[in-house]
Nucleic acid binder design. Structure first.
Lengths: 142, 142
DNA sequence: TATTGTTATACTCTATAACTATA
DNA sequence: TATAGTTATAGAGTATAACAATA
C-alpha cells in the first residue's frame, strides 16, 4: 500500500480539484471555438507535426478505432487531412490543414491565456515547485 | 491580456500535462470498478450527502438534462436512488444506496492510493507549494 | 412568473470485435 | 504472422429546446 499520511490526503484532494478546474477551463475555452475538448487536444497535439494513427492514439490514450471517427469528423470540416505515408502504404499521416493550424493556434493561445490568468498571482516559489513536481510525476522511474 | 513570460509558458504546459496524467489515472482507476470517470465523480460527490438535481448539475458542471440520464443509468444499477424532497414536491434528492456508498468508497480509495503513489517521492516543499497554489486557484477573487 | 426536473433529439466520445490491406 | 487503419455496433456523455408540475 502507498504511504498514507494526513498530508497525502490533502495533496490528493488538491490535485483532484485542480484536475476538475482545468477540465472545466479547457471545456469552456474550446466551446466558443466550435471544438470539443478532445478535438482541441487532437489539433494541439498535431501542432508539433503530422502523426500516424497508431502514434496519435497512443499519445491521446484512446483506441485507434475511436480516433478514426474523430479524424473523420475533423477531416469533414477540413481541419485535418490524411496524407499518405511514403514509407508504408498501409499507414497515413494526419496533418493539420491551413485552417486547422489557425484554429489550433487559437485554441492553444486561448487556453494558455486562461491558465496564465488563473495562476498569475502565484508566488515564484510555488510556480517553480509545480513545474518541478510535474516533471517528476510525468517522468516515472522506468 | 494576461502577463506572459517564459515562466508562464512552462507553468501552463506543466499544468496541462498534469491534467492529462490525472485524467488518464482517473479513467484507468474507474474502469475496473465498472464505472466511467463521470460516474465515479458523481458517486464521490454524493459521498458528502444527498443532493438535488440542480445543485448536483452545478457541482459537476453539466446540464440538468445530461444529469437526468446519468442518474437514470446509476439508478438502474441500484447505485443511487431518487428520494422525495419533503420541502419541495417538484424536487428530489439523489442519494447513494448501500452498494453505491461501498463502490464510491472503493473508487475514492483507489484513486487516492494511485495519486499518493504517483506523488510519494515529491519533497515536502513541493507538496506544500501545490496545496497552497491550488487553494489560491480554486478561491478566485470574488 | 420562476424553478425543478424530465423528455425528445442529435452529436460526440469511446470501446470491442471483426475486417482489409500491406509489411 | 504481425501491423496500420477501418467498419460495424453499442453504450455513455453532453447540449439544446420544449415540456410538466409545483412554487
Amino acid at each position: 500500500m502507498a504511504a498514507g499520511t494526513t498530508q497525502d490526503t490533502e495533496l490528493v484532494g488538491s490535485l483532484v480539484q485542480l484536475m476538475y478546474v482545468l477540465q472545466d477551463l479547457y471545456a469552456e475555452t474550446s466551446r466558443p471555438l466550435g471544438l470539443t475538448p478532445q478535438q482541441a487536444h487532437l489539433l494541439c497535439v498535431l501542432l508539433a507535426g503530422p502523426l500516424g494513427m497508431t502514434e496519435l492514439s497512443r499519445i491521446m490514450s484512446i483506441e485507434r478505432s475511436s480516433l478514426t471517427s474523430m479524424v473523420d469528423r475533423l477531416e469533414r470540416r477540413s481541419l485535418v487531412e490524411r496524407l499518405p505515408d511514403p514509407a508504408d502504404r498501409r499507414a497515413c499521416r494526419i496533418a493539420l490543414t491551413g485552417p486547422g493550424t489557425e484554429l489550433a493556434d487559437q485554441a492553444h493561445s486561448a487556453y494558455t491565456d486562461r491558465i496564465a490568468e488563473l495562476t498569475g498571482n502565484l508566488p515564484a516559489g510555488q510556480r517553480n515547485a509545480i513545474v518541478a513536481a510535474v516533471a517528476t510525476i510525468t517522468r516515472p522511474p522506468e
